[in-house]
């Protein structure tokens, strides 16, 4: 099949680059994100974007922002295998009956992604963190 003429070299290249990465990336995601300093900057950057979005910022009306920033940074540190233990409420309880819909959720994901890019987090680490956060969608939406 002609298919293989294109597919085989392309898949081989992808596979080889994938392997190469796996062998060199020994550092934890937390380290590759840039550690706590970068995580704090990302959270702050994201919250400025949230503050500029009237449809999303309303969810933070009764929230102590400093407390939220610290809790979210701890959660990102924990989920990226950093030296932190997130001890806040589970995601379903934390977002219970807030009326969050897909549009709100997607916007916050975009703010986080843009904040990471803005703060110089390498793309591979950005993608990996988003991948670890993606399963939280179900928890956040469970009790809406």
């Amino acid at each position: 099949m002609r298919f293989h003429r294109y597919a085989t070299p392309l898949l081989m290249t992808l596979w080889l680059t994938g392997c190469a990465t796996q062998h060199t990336d020994k550092a934890s995601l937390y380290t590759r994100l840039g550690g706590m300093q970068t995580i704090d900057s990302v959270v702050e950057n994201m919250l400025y974007r949230v503050a500029d979005d009237p449809e999303v910022v309303v969810f933070f009306a009764n929230t102590n922002i400093d407390h939220f920033a610290e809790a979210f940074a701890t959660q990102l540190c924990d989920i990226s295998d950093g030296p932190c233990q997130y001890e806040g409420p589970p995601m379903d309880r934390a977002h219970q009956h807030m009326g969050i819909n897909d549009a709100h959720f997607n916007r916050v994901v975009e703010y986080l992604a843009n904040a990471m890019a803005d703060e110089g987090v390498p793309l591979a680490a950005q993608n990996e963190l988003l991948g670890r956060l993606a399963p939280l969608y179900d928890d956040v939406m469970r009790l809406q």
Binding site: L14, T17, G18, A20, T21, L123, A124, N127, E128, G131
Partner: peptide
């Protein structure tokens, strides 16, 4: 979409 699947790319 599979996050970070190929050399850190989605």
């Amino acid at each position: 979409l599979i996050f970070s699947a190929v050399a850190g790319r989605n």
